[in-house]
């Protein structure tokens, strides 16, 4: 349990670092802003208490906000996906529930499961984030385009990073 907490704290620091120092400086055009740090909320263990889920979403969101100068926008999006996560997990749960001790990752539940689960959370996160940032409907379609492209890139990065973590675990 303690091990799990430390592992998640390290993951938090790494993901925020990668997002803020690396991805923030890579410009893939105006419509593509991937936010890989969402992975932190996606792979929190199944047993995480609901209040802790919301709190960790809020904390990682507000940390990213500090670096992006967006005061609360990332936090709002993260809290939102932390709130709907239990529902999405229930929607995709296997017939006899999730096994104890497993995590919502590719190595436990496979690529198709993980793709559909993470895609829903990532797209919703990006929708909330980009529409709060623009805050008007006149740019509806260009924002939508931005949501779709950025989501695709985030999902790609999330899946790639899953394989990186996976390999590291085997070496251990």
């Amino acid at each position: 349990m303690l091990n799990e907490i430390i592992r998640n704290i390290i993951r938090f620091v790494i993901l925020v670092g990668v997002q803020v120092l690396l991805i923030k400086n890579i410009e893939l055009g105006r419509f593509i802003n991937p936010f890989i740090y969402v992975l932190f909320i996606i792979v929190l263990p199944f047993e995480t208490p609901k209040w802790l889920l919301l709190l960790s979403g809020f904390i990682i969101g507000i940390t990213i906000d500090m670096f992006y100068d967006t005061a609360g926008m990332h936090a709002a999006a993260c809290v939102f996906i932390a709130y709907i996560r239990p529902g999405v997990l229930k929607l995709f749960s296997p017939r006899d529930g999730y096994e104890f001790g497993t995590q919502p990752t590719i190595q436990y539940l496979g690529v198709p499961w993980f793709l559909s689960y993470s895609a829903i959370l990532i797209v919703l996160h990006h929708i909330v984030l980009f529409y709060t940032e623009v805050f008007r409907f006149s740019e509806f379609f260009s924002t939508f385009f931005r949501v779709i492209l950025s989501s695709v890139f985030t999902i790609l990065l999330v899946v790639i990073s899953q394989y990186l973590f996976h390999r590291k675990k085997e070496q251990e």
């Binding site: 979403g57 809020f58 969101g61 005061a71 609360g72 936090a75 809290v79």
Partner: peptide, 9 residues
């Protein structure tokens, strides 16, 4: 929490 976020924004 959402209200807090909206307040900040």
């Amino acid at each position: 929490m959402e209200i807090l976020c909206i307040y900040l924004i």
